[in-house]
Simulated assay, not measured.
Amino acid sequence: MITMDDIVRDGHPVLRQTAEAVELPPTEEEKQQLADMIEFVKNSQDADIAEKYGLRPGVGLAAPQINISKRMIAVHCEDEDGEEYSYALFNPRIVSHSVKRAYLATGEGCLSVDEAIPGFVPRYQKIRVKATTLEGEDIDIRLKGFPAIVFQHEIDHLNGIMFYDHIQKDQPFAEPENSVAIGRS
């Protein structure tokens, strides 16, 4: 089971590396790591489990955050309409995106960053992602709004990019051009 002790913190060199692609089919160890990642994200959202194990709630986790420099992400979140998005993926990649942007009105946070970093993080409003599931199925998913933002945040981790790298330093709350605010945090 992954705990908060397994999450590497901002400043750890693995968070700035480009993660390696997972050779398919994945090894049993890689499958277990990814299964543990999605379990962690789900557990972190369960108030009782989170309290028992001291987990900070999160909607996504990328393998570099647990010091594994491989292209694996786990996402468990809901969109604005309450539809659930729960994915454990190998080698996710954004294959297309909208011109229109979106950002979280409350800013973004990260399990690897202990302090709040204020500012808007411009993302694409809609993205299309191709990846391989934990079960070995190749998928092609279209995402918009909050789930699209979560996926972009996690995929950034695979490329050594932190969310605050996107915040405009001189005007952190300048509304990104051609964008819409997403009200959830």
Rank of each mutant, 00 (worst) to 15 (best):
Q125G: 03
I141V: 14
F163R: 06
S96G: 15
S86E: 15
P122N: 06
P26H: 05
I38D: 12
Q33M: 10
N178R: 00
S179Q: 09
V59S: 07
T18V: 15
E51G: 08
V113E: 05
E137I: 11
T106F: 13
E108R: 14
G109H: 02
L89W: 11
I94H: 02
V180L: 13
D114K: 14
R128H: 08
E28S: 14
G145T: 04
K100V: 13
G54D: 11
V22F: 04
R93H: 11
Y103F: 15
P25G: 03
Q32C: 06
H76L: 09
P147N: 08
E29G: 07
I68D: 03
V75L: 02
E78V: 15
L143Y: 10
F40M: 05
C77A: 01
R142C: 13
A74P: 08
Q32R: 13
I38Y: 05
V129S: 00
E28G: 04
V41M: 01
N43M: 03
N67F: 04
K42S: 07
N159I: 07
P13N: 08
Y124C: 07
Y164S: 07
A148C: 00
D81V: 04
I161W: 14
D5V: 06
G82Y: 03
G58N: 12
K130A: 03
I161Q: 09
G82R: 13
K52D: 00
I73A: 04
I66G: 07
K100P: 00
V14D: 10
E23N: 06
E83V: 14
I66V: 15
C77K: 00
E28W: 03
N43Y: 05
Q17N: 10
D48R: 14
I127E: 13
A105P: 05
V113G: 12
I155V: 10
L134C: 13
P13Q: 10
G54I: 02
R128V: 13
Y164M: 11
A131T: 12
D48K: 15
H97G: 08
N159A: 12
Q32H: 04
E80F: 00
L143H: 07
A19R: 09
H153M: 10
I49P: 13
K130W: 01
D46H: 07
D170E: 14
Y53Q: 15
Y85G: 03
E175D: 02
E83W: 09
E80G: 06
S96F: 07
G109F: 04
R16H: 08
K100Y: 09
I155H: 01
L104T: 08
P176A: 02
I167C: 00
D6K: 10
L55S: 04
S179P: 01
K144T: 10
D46W: 06
R16I: 06
I7P: 01
S69Q: 04
E135A: 15
L111V: 14
L55G: 09
S185G: 08
L158W: 02
L111N: 02
G54H: 10
P26K: 01
P172L: 03
T27R: 05
F173T: 06
K169I: 15
Y124R: 13
I2S: 12
E137M: 11
H166A: 09
P57K: 15
T106Q: 11
L143D: 03
V41T: 14
D165L: 02
D6G: 01
I73G: 12
S179E: 05
I2R: 08
I167N: 04
E28I: 14
G145V: 02
R9G: 05
T133L: 09
R71C: 06
R128E: 11
S112H: 12
A50K: 15
D156T: 11
D138S: 14
D79A: 08
